[in-house]
Design a binder for these strands. Structure first.
Lengths: 232, 232
DNA sequence: CCAAAAGTGTTCTTACTACACCCATGG
DNA sequence: CCATGGGTGTAGTAAGAACACTTTTGG
């Protein structure tokens, strides 16, 4: 069917955000408590309406800044998927473009949020417990976590969870937490330092993890990891 | 920002389809000629409006059936990405949820289409030529092709391009065409028959490719290829 | 000195590549 | 008999897993 300029059905379009971080050795997501019906008092993913003259990507960026105070330079932000079930919002027809954001653990807890109550919660608790998120946000969160897990394998995205500069050990802990399994430190070190363009030495070292001083690194310009890091 | 039931900006929501097939040893996409402004006379991806009470996925399925006559049992259909630039349609604010469909070469050329002119065109010609598709459909097509290429590596999706049952040689030709590079037939045979759950023998054979009779296969129930087939 | 984390070397095993070779059909 | 594609065997090589071992700090 061809586009027709007149008489099209009206939709509301929103963005929802799956904001992930690694905190206290757990993968955590940002959730906000809803202050009004429907799902009043329940936890939900942060999000909001796309403005009339606003790009969808820009809306995601704006909402992220509003909820976390984070700029695009500090986080990785990408489109996740779009959720368009007619009954996903009981009030009206809403199509939501979900986005995935990966951030380093924030020194300050969720600054600049305009939601009454916003906090980090471990994804295992959010997805495993009996308490469900509002709307179809369980499904969106699940999809976001799955995407993040998959992308660690073949992209340098894990570094988005680390504050720069970081050590190889800190980076390894990110993989272990996100994948939920231990990784051999020796082999990990070799693979990750050997992947061209992944890590750039700063020349500095640190002993903040204890033990022998570790090299500090920043992320390189590689966009794809070759060979990929594989989950056992 | 929390959802508010009143005073939300109105959008039109459409689905656009990147329908791919392998035909005449080339990766081809389905395009329709636009009969009205804007972009009148230009080629575009098939698509149309999502109806008020219709799921976005159902809309994609419906449009696919309208344009090609194909049912969901015959093709692979998945959401690709959403395109939401405020200026992507000069008439109004349209957010489009693009979908990717992979189909076997059709015996009949595009049956049941309600577009005046619909046809298969090699993606190389569509993306390489100076003639651009309508709207942002060049970008959408490019994203769809890239997704398809990537997914062949680690999913059994290549079989969606083959009519069942198929031979290993036919399957290999799909990979060669989509990736644009020759593959060693011997090693390919071993890898693909060795991947658990990918191929199921029918017990039948055929000589339709000439030479020694080849086993005929159907797709198995594997959803992930281990180990993945890699592009050189 | 000891614990802890960083980093290197080595061995074993597995997977991929390249290519020799045989098989079963049609013409 | 020969051309054509189907299918198997095998040797060489690259990559990953497991783990012994050395290094450098803090306490």
């Amino acid at each position: 069917m061809a586009y027709q300029a007149s008489d099209y059905p009206p939709f509301a379009v929103t963005v929802d955000l799956v904001v992930l971080t690694v905190r206290d050795d757990a993968l955590q997501a940002l959730v906000v408590r809803r202050g009004s019906a429907p799902f009043e008092g329940r936890w939900a993913l942060p999000g909001g309406f796309v403005q009339v003259e606003e790009d969808v990507a820009a809306a995601a960026e704006r909402e992220l800044a509003e909820e976390t105070g984070l700029q695009l330079t500090d986080v990785h932000l990408e489109q996740l998927a779009t959720y368009g079930d007619p009954r996903r919002d009981p009030r009206m027809r809403v199509v939501s473009v979900a986005h995935l954001a990966l951030a380093a653990d924030l020194p300050t807890p969720v600054a600049g949020s305009d939601a009454a109550d916003a906090r980090w919660r471990p994804v295992d608790a959010l997805l495993g417990g009996s308490r469900r998120l509002a709307f179809d946000h369980d499904r969106i969160l699940r999809d976001g976590v799955e995407r993040a897990r998959a992308k660690l394998e073949y992209t340098p995205l894990a570094a988005s969870f680390c504050g720069e500069p970081f050590t190889v050990g800190e980076l390894r802990r990110v993989y272990e937490v996100v994948w939920g399994q231990p990784i051999d430190p020796r082999n990990f070190h070799r693979k990750v330092t050997g992947a061209p363009g992944f890590l750039v030495e700063t020349g500095e070292t640190t002993t903040r993890q204890g033990g022998r001083p570790a090299q500090l690194y920043r992320v390189g310009d590689a966009t794809l990891l070759v060979p990929p890091l594989l989950r056992g």
